[in-house]
Design a binder for these strands. Structure first.
Lengths: 345, 345
DNA sequence: TAATCTAGTGCAAACGTATTCTTAAAGGAT
DNA sequence: ATCCTTTAAGAATACGTTTGCACTAGATTA
């Protein structure tokens, strides 16, 4: 019942294997493999025959089978929460493009409000990814150690965990917060406020810390504070609460751009003039920040640099697992636009 | 040199295999496999032993090895161009979440301006994905037939190819364009204009066609036309060209929302009052459309429905390859906001 | 001319799992 | 007590590659 060599298999059959190519080219399966793994120990003439046979059969090596034996999948897992927050699509796109250039594929996992990061991670690891990039999501130390044990290099993007055996590339959020503090104080604002992002995220903690500490050093009075959660809506509402106070602030620092856009729209609705009566500063420099309607002054994260470093560090560690993880901080840059006044004099 | 059974392997060693679990639990590898593939032909007592052993060893089944033998990877390839265009991050997020709920993982491929879709697709297929979702990218008929031959179900999202052996779920873009035409004509606009998206994309062609044909049916005069490319910047510039004409339009239909936002900002810069002097209508209903600064009237794509249908159709076809592909059109809905005037009377 | 090398090829053993086939044991029915 | 059925678990094979090893034949050296 095992007819095989006969019968053209041009129907909807399974994908072509190297064995079939070998048969057609009149060589052994090993040789076919060598041709496709760029192992140059094969005569030009033979190679040509194989390539021809492969072409007529539309043969493509099976990456799964290859991974099993080479113990490399050439897949990188990317775990990301809230892709929809405007900063992250760009990050994701750049990562996939960069990785693709380097011959890696991306296994994507999103952790919505429903799903648990740890559980998700378990799924990623089943696929034996060569490395793991975690952006915009907090993961348990259990998982970090598990990655360590199975030797899967871990790269955190814009997050870091003290003492964890994981590399990380972050914008220097503390310094960024300081920049904002300096600028707002120099411009002589009367009363400042901070709209926070999700608490217990290192981005939020650091940005606030830089802002707060620098203000103290400059002997500025206390600032108001509202809790947000990194969304337009939460920024809008937080700003509205602030602006409707008896002593509304005249300068607001938002933990990210999207909340700053919300804040600007709150000001718009309340007929508060920006920047005359109110300065708003964000963080990230998302595309919408430069749009006419907002013209948002913000701290630009050097995304391309950060992504370049991340991938490089990760791939190095995949190639040489003995390399110790590294944590890097990249400085941000204040981008002046129209939403904040500058000097006052 | 093949020491193995000895020596605690708790260092940075390779991932644990079912064989090691079997050894610890005192059963055969087959049994371990049966426990983890939910093959219930195993006694409760034994099962318990295996689960215990697996837990202490932190065993996770190797999905790659499993795929090789089952001929299913449980991976779905998603190919997407321009993730950064604001409509698509949401699509991507929903797709990954939905697929993850159904036990599938997502292999993501982005096709930037540099990379070729066809070449990218080749890479995807190497990984033996169970199915393929292509959104926002045009692919050659060669590739379509290749998917057909190897039996990989193909699902187009918001694209369709005549006669191709591929399923597709699209917003009914023709009907959407008609809606806009009707609304703008009813509100009594004097001169209309269309800002096009990338030509040769079916979304652009269909939206324009619906708009144009309906206007003709309503015996409306010809409309102006500018070429855009689905970006904020291109929308901004196209609108500026239109508004600086001697006979500027008083109603602009943009092929997508992001261009409409650009158009609104162009109007803002040129001090053209919206909606009194100019109506702007978009397509998609991205989050920013509802922001105070824009309040964009637009055609909402029923994204959740579309994604639900897509995944369902795709998975059905994966389960039963003999099912013929289906093309579905889902109607959009006009969402009235502040950027376009309604009646005129 | 014989001995040594080298490039090119095939053979066969992995990789870690699912699964078919076989065997063993335990009941149940006669 | 014998035979059949059922349940449980092991042995062995297969999935499609890569790769170490062995082998051949021509080329190079002594």
């Amino acid at each position: 019942m095992s007819r095989r060599a006969k019968g053209s298999n041009n129907g909807v059959g399974r994908p072509v294997t190297s064995i079939e190519v070998a048969r057609l080219a009149g060589v052994s399966q090993s040789t076919v493999s060598r041709v496709f793994s760029a192992n140059n120990l094969v005569a030009d003439e033979t190679s040509e025959k194989v390539v021809q046979a492969a072409r007529t059969l539309r043969y493509k090596p099976n990456a799964i089978a290859r991974s099993l034996i080479t113990r490399r999948t050439d897949m990188i897992g990317i775990v990301m929460a809230e892709i929809t927050s405007p900063f992250y699509p760009y990050v994701l796109e750049k990562f996939t493009q960069r990785l693709h250039e380097l011959g890696k594929s991306v296994l994507l996992f999103t952790t919505g409000p429903g799903s648990d990061v740890d559980e998700t991670l378990q799924d990623v690891l089943k696929y034996q990814v060569d490395g793991l990039i975690v952006a915009n999501a907090t993961l348990s130390s259990t998982l970090v150690s598990e990655c360590g044990q199975r030797g899967t290099p871990l790269m955190l993007f814009n997050r870091y965990v003290r003492g964890a055996h994981a590399s990380a590339v972050c914008c220097d959020n503390v310094a960024g917060g300081q920049l904002v503090a300096e600028m707002l104080s120099q411009a002589g604002h009367r009363q400042l406020a901070y709209i926070a992002g999700k608490h217990n995220t290192s981005t939020n903690v650091d940005r606030e810390r830089g802002f707060s500490e620098r203000l103290q050093e400059l002997e500025y009075g206390p600032f108001l504070r509202e809790q947000g959660e990194y969304t337009y809506q939460s920024g809008y509402e937080a700003a509205k609460r602030l602006l409707q106070r008896d002593d509304p602030p005249d300068g607001i620092f938002c933990a990210n751009d999207i909340m700053a856009l919300g804040a600007l729209d709150a000001a718009r609705d309340l007929r508060v003039k920006v920047p005359d009566e109110l300065s708003v500063i964000g963080f990230d420099d998302i595309p919408a920040a430069s749009w006419t309607a907002y013209s948002l002054t913000t701290v630009r994260q050097p995304v391309n640099t950060m992504i370049g470093m991340s991938t490089q560090l990760l791939l190095e560690r995949i190639a040489s697992p003995e390399i110790e993880p590294v944590v890097m901080f990249v400085p941000g840059k204040l981008v002046q636009r129209g939403s904040a006044r500058v000097r006052t004099e």
